[in-house]
Design a protein around this nucleic acid. Structure first.
Length: 271
DNA sequence: AATCGCGCCTGACGGC
DNA sequence: TGCCGTCAGGCGCGAT
């Protein structure tokens, strides 16, 4: 599912329901997610007050005084706030029950997601410490992208998917941003000009911000915390639109397998 | 150091 | 209707 805009949409959805609440208990129906849900979560989280709900890349962080819950939605995960007595779906694997009868409920059919617990500063956690800058933050700019991409031979689409380069840009938004910047997904990252890097940073930020505003992209199973789908799929220019006319020039959009993921582009507008 | 391919899972969809 | 192959928004890991 979820790329950065979907995770941010989720964060904003759950924040008012969880911050300031204390955790009553943790219910793990299936601990077999990407990594086993740690036993310590059940031991150490109950009784703690959730101080904040933040995000780093595609990771969600629930901070308490005793430690931090690190959540990842993988490909098919979603979080919602529901009354605890509402029956769980077969893919509702973890509940964090709150002191008011609500619970934060993780649904994840493919189980590529994760629920972890750390007592240390989460930013030093193995999974987070080497992440690149936040794409919507000040450290992600044209100069950074230009500098980082020098001598890199990877296709720029693949380069953007690498969390060490920039955190949270997935296949949908990489393709969309490259379209708006007029750059082919297959272009070697190291061959981008400074001007192109600046344009690309602008289109990435613009695309992510617009997607957040639309509540994310729902292609299959993404849901906001409220249960509502996102609407950004209606604004996609190239992603999933093979054969449809380019919104700029009318040339049919092409799809090609690039590495493990499909790239979409207009053969005329993107060089 | 950088890059590539694999594998973890379920479910939806299209072709036959 | 059903079976089968293909594909999917992520990402860490080991091999090269």
């Amino acid at each position: 599912m979820p790329e950065l805009p979907e995770v941010e949409t989720t964060r904003r959805g759950i924040e008012p329901h969880v911050v300031g609440r204390s955790v009553a208990r943790v219910i793990v129906r299936n601990a077999h997610l990407r990594w086993r849900v740690p036993d310590k979560l059940k031991k150490e989280l109950p009784g703690q007050v959730i101080q904040s709900a933040s995000r780093r890349g595609k990771y969600l962080l629930l901070v308490t005084h005793a430690g931090t819950v690190i959540l990842h939605l993988g490909m098919s995960g979603s979080l919602r706030v529901a009354p605890c007595d509402q029956p769980a779906d077969k893919h509702d694997h973890v509940d964090i029950a709150l002191d008011n009868g609500d619970c934060l409920r993780l649904r994840d059919p493919r189980r590529f997601g994760a629920v972890l617990w750390t007592r240390d500063d989460p930013l030093t956690h193995k999974l987070l410490k080497d992440l690149g800058p936040e794409p919507l933050g000040p450290d992600f700019n044209g100069a950074y992208l230009f500098h980082t991409s020098r001598k890199r031979k990877r296709a720029v689409r693949d380069f953007l998917l690498d969390g060490h380069v920039v955190a949270g840009v997935g296949n949908i938004y990489a393709n969309e941003s490259l379209f708006l910047a007029g750059i082919r997904p297959s272009r070697a990252a190291g061959r981008l000009t400074q001007t192109q890097c600046e344009a690309l940073v602008r289109t990435i930020r613009q695309t992510l911000n617009r997607a957040i505003k639309a509540g994310g992209t729902t292609l299959r199973d993404f849901r906001q915390a409220s249960g509502q789908p996102g609407y950004f799929q209606l604004s996609l220019h190239v992603y999933g639109r093979e054969g449809e006319p380019c919104p700029t020039c009318g040339t049919p959009i092409r799809a090609r397998r690039q590495g493990q993921r499909t790239a979409f582009f207009c053969p005329k507008c993107q060089l």
